Simulated assay, not measured.
Amino acid sequence: MQWVLDHLGDISSLGLQHIWLSGVPLVLGLLISIPVGWLATRTRWLRGILITGSGLLYTIPSLALFVLMPLVLGTSILSPLNVVVAMTIYTIALLVRSVVDGLTSVPEEVARSATAMGYTPARRFFGVDLPLAVPVIAAGLRVAAVSSVSMISIASLIGVSQLGDLLVDGFNRDIAGELFAGVLASILLAIAFDVLIRLAEHTLTPWRRVQQGGGT
């Protein structure tokens, strides 16, 4: 614990970098996955291709993807942009299926009722289908968040600083306190992301609170 107390500034700085490298890909991945998932639900022959294709992206080893990004993007090996793009790809790989599952879980009678009330396809999507799909999408986003927080640590091996630096340096120098700080900080960050996503889901689905209140 003494090592942790003596290096709170360094831990905080690395933690903020880790938050940025984790949070930006989650937002970008979600924004990309929603239209891709919508397209998969609207075009039957594309559904299998998009779901399977996006899922295969997750099989690419993270270290290999981090190393390949500079070649694709034309950036330096130490650029955080490499990690952001790579983690966005992994987020898409996890979220496309969740978006498809969420949109297809909308009851058919609800969709028909909205159409009968004069909702255009776009208005129905944003006003009915997407809100009702939020719980399923949020569940996938929570998995993606935890995965992102843990996977980004590997970027320390290519020189991109974040909480993984504590794990690598602590292991190389046999500093137990540093290893403990890296593990604990990563766990706390994953929990924080999970709580934030749960709060967002809670805010975006007020009708669920009404249903739960009516059932108690």
Rank of each mutant, 00 (worst) to 15 (best):
Q212P: 11
V143L: 14
N82C: 04
T59E: 02
V160Q: 05
I137V: 15
L28S: 00
E109N: 06
G182D: 03
I187P: 12
V136P: 04
P80K: 11
F180M: 12
L16D: 03
L163V: 13
G55H: 11
M117R: 09
L130K: 08
I158D: 00
W3Q: 06
G9Q: 13
G37I: 04
V36T: 10
L130C: 08
H7Y: 13
S33M: 06
L16V: 14
V160P: 02
R47D: 08
A111R: 14
G182N: 06
V210D: 15
G164M: 10
R97D: 07
V84Q: 04
I60C: 02
L204R: 02
L189T: 11
A185R: 05
G127P: 10
V106E: 00
P121Q: 08
G48D: 08
L196Y: 00
F193G: 04
F193N: 04
G170K: 06
P80V: 08
R47T: 05
S79N: 12
V4S: 08
W45V: 14
V168G: 03
D194H: 10
I197L: 14
V83I: 13
A116P: 00
R112D: 10
L39Y: 06
A40T: 09
V106Y: 00
I197M: 05
L163G: 09
M117C: 12
S22P: 03
L204M: 14
G177N: 05
S13M: 13
V168E: 07
V4W: 11
L31Q: 01
P107H: 00
G53F: 11
F125W: 09
P80T: 08
I77S: 07
V110M: 07
A86N: 02
L31T: 03
V149Q: 05
L8W: 14
V160A: 06
L46V: 03
R124Y: 05
T88H: 07
L132C: 03
T59S: 14
I77D: 01
L56Q: 14
T88N: 06
R123H: 15
G15H: 08
S76T: 15
G53R: 05
I49D: 00
M87N: 06
L39S: 12
T205I: 10
V160D: 03
W38D: 08
L179T: 03
L21I: 12
L78E: 08
V85F: 01
L73M: 03
L8Y: 13
R173Q: 14
V84I: 15
S153Y: 04
L95R: 02
A200V: 14
L63W: 05
A192F: 08
R173W: 11
S113H: 00
V67G: 01
L199P: 01
D10L: 15
L63D: 07
Y90R: 10
P121H: 03
T91P: 03
G170V: 05
V195P: 01
G164Y: 09
I11C: 10
A155R: 02
Q162R: 07
I187V: 15
V84R: 02
G170W: 05
G170M: 04
P80E: 09
L71Y: 12
I51D: 08
I137Y: 07
L130M: 10
